[in-house]
Write a protein that binds this DNA or RNA. Sequence first.
DNA 1: AGAGCGCGTGTTACCGCTAACAGCGCTGAC
DNA 2: GTCAGCGCTGTTAGCGGTAACACGCGCTCT
Lengths: 363, 363
Amino acid sequence: MARPSRRGRGAITIEDVARAAGVSAMTVSRVMNKGRNVRESTREAVLEAVERLNYSPNTAARSLAAGQATHIGLLYANPSASYLAQFLVGALHAARSAGVHLVIESCESEDADEQAEVTRRFATSDVEGVVLPPPLSESQPIMAELDAMGIPVVTVAMGVPRDDSLNVRIDDRAAAIEMTRYLIDLGHRDIGFIKGHPNHVASHDRFAGFRDALTEAGLDCDKAPVEQGYFSYRSGLSAGERLLSRQNRPTAIFASNDDMAAATISVAHRRGLVVPDDISIVGFDDTALATSVWPELTTVKQPIAAMAEAALELMIADLRSHRNGAQRKFTERVLSHAMIIRESSGPPPGARKAKTRRPAKAS
Amino acid sequence: MARPSRRGRGAITIEDVARAAGVSAMTVSRVMNKGRNVRESTREAVLEAVERLNYSPNTAARSLAAGQATHIGLLYANPSASYLAQFLVGALHAARSAGVHLVIESCESEDADEQAEVTRRFATSDVEGVVLPPPLSESQPIMAELDAMGIPVVTVAMGVPRDDSLNVRIDDRAAAIEMTRYLIDLGHRDIGFIKGHPNHVASHDRFAGFRDALTEAGLDCDKAPVEQGYFSYRSGLSAGERLLSRQNRPTAIFASNDDMAAATISVAHRRGLVVPDDISIVGFDDTALATSVWPELTTVKQPIAAMAEAALELMIADLRSHRNGAQRKFTERVLSHAMIIRESSGPPPGARKAKTRRPAKAS
DNA sequence: AGAGCGCGTGTTACCGCTAACAGCGCTGAC
DNA sequence: GTCAGCGCTGTTAGCGGTAACACGCGCTCT
């Protein structure tokens, strides 16, 4: 088999396809892109030829001719490594389909001036739009700087989107409600909660969902043991410590992310508790850590790669429409999450016989 | 400040620079690329104009005109998430400088036929070369398939490079020697070792380094407690369990990667041991996990991002030279590692006063 | 019936850059 | 002195697409 799709001189071009389909190159171009104003029979003939010749457009030529976006920026800061990996995988897929380059830069500083400085340098370099995954999606200085430079932004998982912003997220509150309900259904009545970083709106949403579910079940959510955490493993260590040394130790703990849940498991182990027999511990995010620890974490899975793809698609669509003079308008995409039930959760110690009713492992 | 570097109509082009420098576009092109056959004074004038106008070449036009490589593939499989994240960051930087697109695909299957199938689909799609990070760099089926298709490959951290291959790695053996020496210098005489997956050549290299250092110190390396692991957290759990339940518990444990080291710490904690006072535990790789656990791991840092960059540079250089008809030849780049000393290691329990001599935290 | 319009398609002129070659002035060999 | 050869620079002709416009056609509207 020849390798007709390899780039370089001698590859299949739009002309080849046009000849094969008995039309002009322009018609092929139309079919490959928007596809409006092409008769159905013509379109089919072209697609057939494309298929037969295994044609794929040369992205370089396309970008050049269309003068379209070629570089999308991605500014990231110290997310959990597995979050970044998944995010990049998704972003790269979207970038590839759109034929744009993904340009990434890290911005670790928490200092506003420094963030602005990094942003400016980054944005001046080459990029036409910037995607901001958490936690940077909440950063005021960065947003302000990009706004000032007139560079469009798509935020991911930003809690309080502005009127003119593009945002991708999941419904944190609904997910937290589901998780809490699940624990309640297992028989838990005394559920502890570890909050996330107070600067993140997601933290508040998750906590709100937790309270919603308790209230809904007729439990007093003001009496629930709640500790402040900051999303880091270390903060989970101390929050878990505090929860487990309470007079009335909860039978289940819902941590706002996997790192803190894993830390809490480690604290429980050090105290000789067996998870989930003595205590259930669940997390949020389904990062790689969730399956690295033992027992593996019951958690909420965020479709991280899909969110990244969605973010890039939104960005590219916006860039395209903006070039056509269209007005930017508020767009939000809410993707669906999923409960992942693993081994770190089970019925409370009292309800032994309920044990056999433990739900089957999910997907 | 205007944004002269934004793409789209109206950006700074090579013509602008040429005019500003009083030369032709071709001369500017020569300066920007190889730069041979340009008088020094001319070059300076051009560079000055480039600087002044803040010109950056349009990668799309460049690829199109030069007919050069535009898509480099990256096939990955379930590495630790933080490894992948760092690798992608490095790869993306290199891809950006070279103006190529990074195309990624995962290949999780262990089955040879399936690996070959995925590889074929991937390679047929679009890519001119493929970069293979571990563990895929050791996969025979994938290499065979790519060879058959005539697609150049750069492997990363492959243990036994072939004569005609391009490879990037660190010196695992030397790194293991350093780490073991460090433990010996702290006063440890009874050092346990957890081996990595037997399919990986790096596992053997690290173990060999461990033995080298023991022998060098006059210790009997055949008496050292060694357990087989498989690089996974779970395998570290059982290997650690076995090591810690030995009659003569070692005073230090060297795990072949961070995941297994972290698992061993967790086992130690469950047994009421204090790290590093009762036992030192060190890892390898310096993944994100190393700083997620408590105490943070002493480990060997692999320059993962730099290795990815090197791999892409090698790939691009090879593609370029190959287009010029040059022969492919064996090339290996060995990058340097670094010892990262954190809190999980210290002198053995007997040597209390040595405690103050504990080396300062690195970098 | 003729104007006007929208549809489907082809033609032309680039997008920004570089390969290939052409041309110039200078050097050194004969 | 002439001519080959080299170093430096400019000119030409695309790379593979797409925007913009042009064109022919059938239809509706007045």
